[in-house]
Design a protein around this nucleic acid. Structure first.
Length: 552
RNA sequence: GGGUCCGUAGCUCAGCUUGGAUAGAGCACUAGCCUUCUAAGCUAGGGGUCGAGGGUUCAAAUCCCUUCGGGCCCGCCA
């Protein structure tokens, strides 16, 4: 049970009301308390002014979870029991804030196209998906992360055309998937539509030469992607291939016709969803081939049946919003109740300052290129700070900071907002960034390492009385609530914003409350607070997929 | 035309789900702080008709309606 619930129960018991926990709000700043009860909501019933009510409530005695209450105007500000919070974090450690949900959830994300480059748009998707996956797992759910490769279609033909006609020499010992992506972009510009169509058709007819080239290219792309996932520390339980679902949709379409959801129209099979305001869509083309929605539908049914899923999350760009509404509606009309628990996590595209990205025009920032650029900058900085460290130690620090910087950038803005990715800003590691949070974490680590005192929860809690200490503890107590909200709403940015706040409060504490001191009781008390802060920072960073280095 | 998302400080964005206390951060700019736990840090300063108009309410950046500007989607792409 979170503190909010405990507080409202304690309040209700004392004032004999049945208030919902959501009436409690967070005061505008920590010094005003941990929660506030706006007494307006009681004034009609009690026929008293909210100011009077607050004043009256202030003098009541509450259970020990509430340390004190203070009436400020029409608000009753509530301060949680500090000792209680700190003891709990210290006891639970990395389990602090975990939930007890038991759903089986599949989450599909990343979905890069083989034969094209993995760019920062895919990066946003991947980082979001991984974070949501971790958040859902943290709530106790069984999570199955999957990836989906679209290995059929014209983009494959384009790339194969490029391989054949552009005569670009194959680089030795290099990432061939990345090289393929660049060939794709060039082919898009230099080739002609008719030439692509010929290859596309031959591929569908299983032409030996092109099939061989296709298989080779696919394996290069997969190697490229696996390389990046290893870099990002992400693993999938299963990869789905578009090519495996080319024909399986037919049975489903027939059933949809039987259920009168679909019908023939001008040679094609369509589903009329106008009455749900979801337009009409084509399921099967007039030449008999399946549309994407059909493959998606058969894949969705396949997943629900095979894995006995409670729900499914699809991390896909906002431009496919209608597509997923249609998909879920078809699933429902087909008879699957799970459609109610399917969720399209729609996110805004990543643009560049000069406009939108497009692999076809080559106006893209590839993940690997970005990494090379940032590493160059990190090299100088790290050599300046740690010239006594070994190469592998320096490499580890660079990886951690790079990962934090880009992942945090991708996860900080609200998911449905578009991101304008400015490489100049991404190389800045100061201010509201991932490295800033890591920095707070390393400072905490450093204090714990330097002190000779043992960390224990048997301290004099009254010594943690300065406002910087009080504010920090107050915010630490919100971690369970924050992670629960973030998981329920599929919004990692809630955690990101929270960690920034914690880091700011910790910096404030760091500058005003020296830990290592002659006063050993004070040192012990502050050490425990530092330990708890470090725990929350690293738990939170983990949920964003970011490492918490001990030094940087 | 229909749908959907976005519009808050010079710039990038929180806050809107669930209305509530002086609308918060970062960047940039100005002035300070390293003999003291990592200065990737901290302190102070200026900077706002919350796109506009109306409505509901004791109370609106937040809810409702209208409107303007931008992105994306709307039967043979994925």
């Amino acid at each position: 049970m979170n503190y909010k619930k405990k507080v409202i129960l304690a309040l209700n018991k004392e004032i004999k009301e049945k208030l919902d926990e959501n009436v409690l709000e967070l005061p505008p700043n920590e010094s005003l308390g941990d929660y506030a009860l706006p007494c307006f909501i009681l004034s009609k019933k009690l026929k008293k002014s909210p100011i009077e009510i607050a004043k009256k409530l202030e003098s009541k005695k509450f259970p020990s979870i509430i340390e004190k209450t203070k009436a400020v105007g029409p608000y009753l500000n509530i301060y949680l029991n500090r000792k209680h919070i700190i003891k709990e974090i210290f006891k639970e450690k990395e389990n602090y804030g975990k939930g007890n949900k038991k759903e089986k959830i599949m989450i599909e994300f990343s979905n890069p196209n083989p034969f094209k480059g993995f760019h920062i748009g895919h990066l946003r998707n991947t980082v979001l998906g991984e974070s949501i996956s971790r958040l859902l797992k943290f709530q106790g759910n069984k999570v199955i992360p999957v990836n989906y490769y679209n290995d059929t279609g014209k983009h494959v033909a384009k790339c194969l055309w490029g391989l054949e006609n552009l005569k670009v020499s194959k680089p030795e010992d290099k990432d061939l998937g990345e090289w393929l992506g660049k060939i794709y972009s060039q082919a898009s510009i230099k080739g002609k539509e008719e030439e692509f169509s010929i290859i596309h058709k031959k591929l569908e007819e299983k032409d030996k030469k092109y099939t061989k080239a296709f298989k080779q290219g696919l394996s290069w792309s997969e190697e490229h992607f696996n390389n990046i996932y290893k870099d990002l520390n992400i693993t999938f339980s299963k990869i789905y291939y578009d090519s495996d679902y080319l024909d399986t949709g037919k049975k489903i379409v027939n059933n949809l016709i039987k259920k009168k959801v679909a019908k023939l129209d001008e040679g094609a099979i369509i589903a009329d969803l106008e009455k749900y305001k979801l337009n009409t869509l084509i399921l099967t083309r007039s030449d008999g081939t399946s549309m994407y929605i059909t493959k998606d539908l058969s894949m969705a049914i396949d997943r629900i049946n095979k894995f006995k899923l409670d729900s499914s999350v699809y991390v896909v760009g906002s431009e496919q919003k209608l597509h997923f509404q249609q998909l879920f509606k078809l699933l429902e009309l087909y008879g699957y109740k799970q459609s109610k628990k399917c969720y399209h996590l729609s996110y805004g595209l990543v643009n560049l300052p000069e406009g939108s990205m497009s692999s076809r025009s080559g106006n893209i920032v590839l993940y690997k290129d970005l990494k090379r650029k940032l590493f160059k900058l990190l090299d100088e900085e790290i050599n300046k700070r740690h010239n006594n460290k070994s190469k592998s130690e320096k490499q580890k620090i660079k990886e951690d900071i790079f990962s934090a910087a880009i992942r945090f950038d991708m996860v900080l803005p609200d998911t449905n907002k578009e991101i304008t990715f400015d490489i100049k800003k991404s190389i800045c590691f100061e201010g509201d960034t991932g490295p800033y949070i890591q920095y707070a974490h390393t400072r905490a680590s450093s204090i714990l390492k330097k002190s000779k005192e043992k960390i224990s929860d048997k301290i004099n809690y009254r010594l943690l009385s300065k406002k910087e200490e009080q504010n920090l503890i107050s915010k630490l107590a919100l971690f369970p609530e924050i992670t629960k909200n973030a998981a329920e709403q599929h919004k990692p940015n809630i955690v990101a914003q929270y960690l920034l706040r914690i880091s700011h409060l910790f910096s404030d504490f760091y500058h005003n409350c020296p830990c290592i001191s002659e006063d050993k009781d004070l040192e012990k008390a502050r050490l425990l607070l530092v330990f708890c802060t470090k725990q929350i920072l690293s738990s939170g960073l983990y949920l964003l997929g970011i490492n918490s280095p001990e030094e940087m």
